[in-house]
């Protein structure tokens, strides 16, 4: 099925109370700002947000947190110079946090999208982030068992889409987008431009359309 082209508000109706939502971006690069704004407007709550950071400033993810819609954040780096919204909620005990090393975060979503049941990672061996986790020594090296992270919905930002839903990205704004697109039941991509089928060279497609359900055009 090809992706449907919709407005942001219609796209995020896929998000239900209690959902796990994967949110792309590394800082502001690749952050699906308009989709997050639409999600705030939509009103779904009790959400688990999986993203590299836990919001910057007062917009985007930070605004979603400030609106009280998020029960738990799964991320690698919540604490930043401008993460005051998350910091306040965390210190007040109003939000749960699961800190995951950045590579494990990406690989756990990759595993979800690739149908892998779990994997042994060398990252975090001997650290507090491996406490309570199963370990195994393979060829003399110690590994920690990590489970997939699957999303109900992924909100990502890409550069260009065709009407099938094939996506290209720009520079380091690619970051988590291609991985998250594979790991959610419904993937919604905001893109700068939607072109006709055949107008993207198949050789340069980064995210094949099979992973993309809804497209929202947000011209730059």
């Amino acid at each position: 099925m090809t992706a449907t082209v919709v407005k942001a508000g219609e796209a995020v109706e896929a998000v239900k109370d209690g959902d796990t939502v994967l949110v792309g971006g590394f800082g502001m690069a690749g952050m699906p700002v308009q989709l997050i704004d639409a999600l705030i407007e939509h009103g779904a709550g009790d959400l688990t947000i999986v993203s590299n950071n836990a919001g910057n400033g007062d917009t985007g993810l930070a605004a979603l947190l400030a609106a009280g819609r998020v029960r738990k954040v799964v991320c690698s780096f919540p604490r930043q110079s401008d993460s005051w919204v998350f910091d306040g909620l965390y210190r007040a005990g109003k939000i749960e946090l699961e800190v995951v090393p950045q590579g494990n975060l990406a690989e756990r979503m990759r595993a979800a999208g690739a149908g892998i049941g779990a994997f042994f990672s060398p990252t975090a061996v001997g650290t507090p982030l491996a406490e309570g986790k199963e370990t195994r020594t393979i060829d003399g090296r110690e590994y920690v068992l990590e489970y997939p992270i699957r999303g109900d919905v992924a909100l990502i930002s890409a550069f260009r889409a065709d009407r099938m839903g094939n996506l290209t990205y720009r520079k380091t704004a690619r970051n988590f987008g291609p991985v998250m697109a594979t790991a959610a039941t419904v993937t919604i991509a905001q893109v700068s431009e939607i072109v006709e089928i055949g107008d993207i060279d198949p050789e340069v497609v980064v995210t094949p359309a099979i992973y993309v359900d809804r497209l929202v055009e947000v011209p730059r």
Partner: peptide
């Protein structure tokens, strides 16, 4: 990545992956 202070907000980023990688 952490001083282990009780009120610190833990944040590791990619440090653990880099350290062993």
């Amino acid at each position: 990545w952490s001083t282990g202070a009780p009120d610190a907000i833990p944040a590791v980023g990619g440090a653990m992956d880099l350290a062993i990688g």
